[in-house]
C-alpha cells in the first residue's frame, strides 16, 4: 500500500519540481513584457500621431489607432515647399557621415599615439587635452563663429564638419583606454613581421578595435544628428538647413498650432538612420567581442 502510494506520489513531486522553475521565467516574462510595453508606448504614439489628420490630432481623449490613416502626412513632408524635408535630411546625413569619419580618423590616430608611445610630457599633454572637455560649447561659440566667418565658410556645412577632423577629447579618451589594453606582444610580433608604425595602427589596432569604433561612431553620429545650436548659428539659407532646424521650426510659432502629425512623421523618419546604425554597429560590436576573445 505504502509503496503503491509512494509510486502514485512520485510523479506528482516531479511535476511540482517541473512547475517550480517555470514560475520564475513566467514572472520575468510578464515584467519584461510590461516594461517593453511602457518603453514602446511613446514610439507607438509617435507612429499613431504621424498618421492622424489635424482634427484627430487635437481630439480628446486621444485615439490610439487613427480612424483614417493619413499617409499624406509623409507625402506632405517631401512635397510642401515650406518644409523642404528631403533637402534637410540629405544635409543632416552629409554632416553626420563626414563628422563620424573625421572624428574616428583623427581621434583614433591621436589616441593611438597617447596609448602606445611614451614621450616626455605626454602625460601632461593628455591632461591638457582632457581639460578642454571642461570648456562648454557656448564658451567657444563666438570665437569659433568669428574664425569660420572670417575664412568665408559662413552659411555652408563645412563649419559643422571641419572641427571633427581635429579630434574630440572625449572620444580620444575612450579610444586611448581601449588601445592601452592591447598586449605589447601583438605589436612586437607585428614589428618582427616588418610592419611600420602606421601599419601597426591601420592593419592591427583598428581591426581589433571594432567595439570601441562602433561605440564612438554611434556617439558621434547621434551628437551630430541631434545638434541644433551649431547649425542654427552658421546656416542662413534654407537649402543648407539640417533636420533639427527644420523640426524646431515646425514648433517655433507661438501664433499657430504646431503640426504635431507632420512633426511625428518627421521624427519617425529621422530616427531611422540611428536605428539602422545601431543595428549595423551592434553586429560589429559582437564581432569585435569575438575577435578580442580569440586573441
Amino acid at each position: 500500500m505504502n509503496t503503491a502510494a509512494a509510486q502514485v506520489r512520485e510523479p506528482r513531486t516531479t511535476s511540482r519540481r517541473r512547475k517550480m522553475p517555470a514560475a520564475g521565467p513566467l514572472i520575468g516574462f510578464v515584467v519584461l513584457l510590461a516594461v517593453t510595453v511602457a518603453m514602446l508606448a511613446p514610439l507607438w504614439f509617435m507612429v499613431s500621431t504621424s498618421l492622424k489628420t489635424t482634427k484627430e490630432m487635437l481630439a480628446f481623449p486621444p485615439t490610439f489607432i487613427p480612424e483614417t490613416f493619413a499617409w499624406s502626412n509623409f507625402k506632405e513632408l517631401f512635397t510642401n515647399s515650406d518644409i523642404k524635408f528631403g533637402q534637410q535630411y540629405a544635409n543632416s546625413l552629409i554632416v553626420a557621415v563626414f563628422s563620424v569619419l573625421g572624428t574616428v580618423i583623427s581621434s583614433s590616430l591621436v589616441a593611438f599615439g597617447f596609448a602606445r608611445y611614451r614621450a616626455r610630457g605626454s602625460g601632461l599633454l593628455f591632461l591638457l587635452m582632457l581639460s578642454t572637455m571642461m570648456l562648454p560649447y557656448p564658451a567657444i561659440m563666438i570665437p569659433q563663429f568669428l574664425l569660420f566667418t572670417n575664412i568665408g565658410l559662413h552659411d555652408s556645412l563645412l563649419p559643422l564638419i571641419l572641427p571633427n577632423f581635429f579630434g574630440s577629447a572625449y572620444i580620444i579618451f575612450l579610444l586611448k583606454q581601449f588601445f592601452s589594453t592591447m598586449p605589447n606582444e601583438l605589436y612586437d610580433a607585428g614589428r618582427i613581421d616588418g610592419s611600420n608604425e602606421f601599419r601597426l595602427f591601420w592593419n592591427l589596432t583598428l581591426p581589433l578595435a571594432g567595439p570601441a569604433l562602433a561605440t564612438v561612431s554611434i556617439f558621434t553620429f547621434i551628437w551630430s544628428w541631434n545638434d541644433l545650436l551649431t547649425p542654427v548659428l552658421y546656416l542662413d539659407s534654407q537649402e543648407n538647413f539640417t533636420l533639427p532646424i527644420g523640426m524646431a521650426a515646425m514648433m517655433s510659432s507661438k501664433f499657430r498650432l504646431a503640426p504635431w502629425n507632420l512633426l511625428m512623421a518627421a521624427a519617425l523618419l529621422s530616427s531611422l538612420p540611428i536605428i539602422t546604425l545601431f543595428a549595423v554597429a551592434q553586429r560589429r560590436f559582437v564581432e569585435g567581442i569575438v575577435l578580442t576573445g580569440i586573441k
Partner: peptide, 9 residues
C-alpha cells in the same frame, strides 16, 4: 535676403 532661426534659438 531673409534669414531665419527657430523661436528658441
Amino acid at each position: 535676403k531673409v534669414t531665419k532661426a527657430p523661436y528658441e534659438q
